[in-house]
Write a protein that binds this DNA or RNA. Structure first.
Length: 570
RNA sequence: CGGGAUGUAGUUCAUCGGUAGAACGCUCGGUUCGGGACCGAGAGGUAGUGGGUUCAAUUCCCGCCAUCCCGACCA
């Protein structure tokens, strides 16, 4: 490719964004923003995206068949699964022109994932046990109405994804294939070059499953997920599900008499701790919840922690819960919201205490009296020890893994892939049965598996760069070499450069040739560094009949002849 | 969805109650040519949008839209 013919240009004064990928990919001319979270992939960006997707495709073809489903689909499919109601990022088309004579104002769903379509599809063809197992995948643009698109390609409203769906006659077979996909994903990440910094992470199954799901997370400062890692067990949890034990506090102090302190209008543990002149760890956060069963729950965690509602649901044995209304809080505690504690609660209130409350003395707690806090509360004397402590807090940096007592390693990451056992969720919704050997009808087991190809492009940009620009791994670089021609107004040099360019192409070495004649050397070098192609070659009057060779990651250059160069790339 | 900010040339920004200016980019001419050169000339704007205040609004006020940032959310 001749640089002079390449659509798109570098723009070194383009805006700086919060994320490196948004800034550099736009400065270097890989993408162009059309609206928040929606981008055009320019030739350079499109080539990277294609490379990533082709690497994915090559691995997926070993375990599934590629298909292409539509992006717009009828609402009925989503009504059938019930997700029309539950997926709040779902986008739909709306009639743009209501006065058209041939108006068709039916609304369609802009797909964010394809469980519905693929289940309905499979049901048309594969109904005999002999057809199973099978799997199909596609690589396609997806739509999600993110409340807040951000960080360039890391969180878009239209993005690229590979999604794979598998179908099985039993849960065991699904589990077997699940492991096959896991290994296949590892191979993809190895090929792309991010496997070393990628973790399989236990995460919430969300709507899809009550079990953990598995996410593939690549370490990345700009990433939105926080991982809790235990090296000795090779275990990694997403923050949303990480089991946690709070670090132990010192217990050497003597016990003081309990009293009530007025703290009018003081909200939040930070302000309270400051007001009472006690460490935050000595405060107690008590939240009043109501459950789907009509129960009222008082959930308490050590100050500085947040209540994790998923964990609380499990501890309380309920499917749904929400923060209680201010009326219920008042009825339950006798105080306005903000002064709840565990002292003197009505008997019918179910108390769930986090283990972080355990090893404390002389702690604070809401007094269940508007504007008042109890201080120097102690278990045994003022408050009975619970039969059981739970883990209902969101883990934070410094916490321990309860099973081994080890301190978690905590780091940020971005989710590049995920796999869910769907089991029979969708086959039930769609009445998708197969007939087994005995002629009996049974529900199909399904799994779904995604890789975010455009997000991977963003993550790579985020991880591989320096103060001069991008540094693409060879596997996904838009071109393998960046050939720079200087002094091209001199006929002999121009000839040399073009014939070497032809030779590279003949040898199938992907080359971007900066053939611009009216651009200074410095500008060309700057562009090459910004674009980040792994190898730079220079032909100029200074190189004579040889060619200068330099890696993007290194400073040193070498003068080589064309055979030596070709050898390096074949 | 809550909080904050912004919207002016292709881009990044400046300016101002009396209808706009720089830098970069672009075009032409010339000099340069190994780390983002220089000189000269030139093209390019209904100031996001709708309303209000005013003799006069790009400027002040309000609504809407859009973008960015923080937070909530994230099947």
């Amino acid at each position: 490719m001749l640089y002079s013919k390449l659509f798109g240009k570098t723009n070194k004064q383009a805006k700086e964004y919060d994320s490196i990928n948004a800034t550099l990919l736009q400065k270097a001319g890989f993408i162009d923003q059309v609206m928040a979270g929606v981008y055009t992939y320019l030739p350079l960006g499109n080539r990277v995206l294609s490379k990533i997707e082709n690497l994915i495709r090559r691995e997926m073809d070993k375990i599934a068949s590629e298909i292409l489903m539509p992006a717009i689909v009828p609402k009925q499919l989503w009504e059938k699964s019930g997700r029309l109601e539950t997926v709040d990022v779902l986008m739909k088309t709306a009639p743009a022109n209501a006065v058209s004579k041939t108006k068709n104002d039916t609304e369609y769903i802009l797909s964010c994932t394809h469980e519905e379509v693929v289940t309905a599809l499979a049901e048309k063809f594969n109904l005999s046990y002999k057809d199973f197992p099978f799997a199909v995948y596609q690589i396609q643009s997806k739509f999600r109405n993110e409340p807040r698109a951000k960080s360039g390609l890391l969180r878009g409203r239209e993005f690229r994804m590979k999604d794979l769906y598998s179908f099985h006659t039993s849960e065991e077979d699904l589990k077997k294939y699940y492991e096959v996909v896991k290994e296949s994903y590892w191979e993809v990440f190895r090929k792309i070059g991010i496997a070393d910094e990628t973790y399989v992470v236990l995460a919430s199954g969300g709507d899809f499953t009550d079990d953990y799901s598995h996410e593939f997370q690549t370490t990345c400062e700009t990433g939105e997920d926080t991982l809790f890692h235990i090296p000795s067990k090779s275990l990694t949890f997403n923050k949303e599900v990480a089991p946690s034990r709070a670090p132990i506090l010192s217990l050497t102090e003597e016990i003081f008499p309990m009293s009530e302190v007025e703290g009018k209008g003081i909200k939040g543990v930070e302000a309270l701790a400051k007001y009472l002149k006690i460490p935050v760890e000595k405060t107690t956060k008590t939240l009043i919840y109501q459950t789907d069963k009509g129960e009222v729950i008082a959930a308490a965690v050590r100050g500085g922690y947040e209540v994790n509602e998923e964990k609380l649901k499990k501890a309380a044995g309920c499917k749904k819960l929400q923060l209680a209304s201010s009326e219920i809080v008042k009825k339950t505690t006798g105080a306005e919201v903000g002064y709840a504690g565990l002292l003197n609660l009505p008997d019918e209130v179910k108390v769930v205490m986090d283990e972080s409350l355990n090893d404390r003395k002389n702690f604070e707690m809401g007094a269940n009296k508007t504007d008042f806090h109890s201080v120097n509360v102690n278990f045994g004397r003022d408050l009975p020890e619970p039969e059981k402590y739970y883990d209902i807090k969101t883990a934070k940096d410094g916490d321990l893994y309860p099973e081994t007592g080890e301190k978690y390693q905590v780091f940020k990451a971005s989710e590049v892939g995920n796999i869910f056992p769907l089991n029979t969720k969708y086959s039930e919704a769609f009445n998708y049965y197969f007939t087994d050997e005995k002629g009996e009808k049974k529900l199909v087991y399904m799994g779904c598996y995604g890789i975010g190809s455009s997000r991977i492009m963003g993550v790579i940009a985020e991880k591989y760069n320096d103060d001069r620009g991008l540094i693409w791994p060879e596997s996904v670089a838009p071109f393998k070499v960046h050939l720079i021609g200087l002094d091209l107004k001199e006929e002999s040099i121009k000839k040399h450069a073009f014939s070497f360019y032809d030779l590279l192409q003949k040898k199938d070495i992907e080359v971007l040739f900066d053939d611009r004649e009216d651009v200074s050397a410095g500008a060309k070098f700057g562009d090459a560094d910004l674009i980040g192609i792994p190898f730079r070659l220079v032909i100029s009057k200074r190189t004579g009949d040889k060619i200068e060779f330099k890696k993007r990651t290194e400073k040193e250059t070498q003068l080589l002849n064309s055979e030596e160069i070709i050898k390096r790339f074949t």
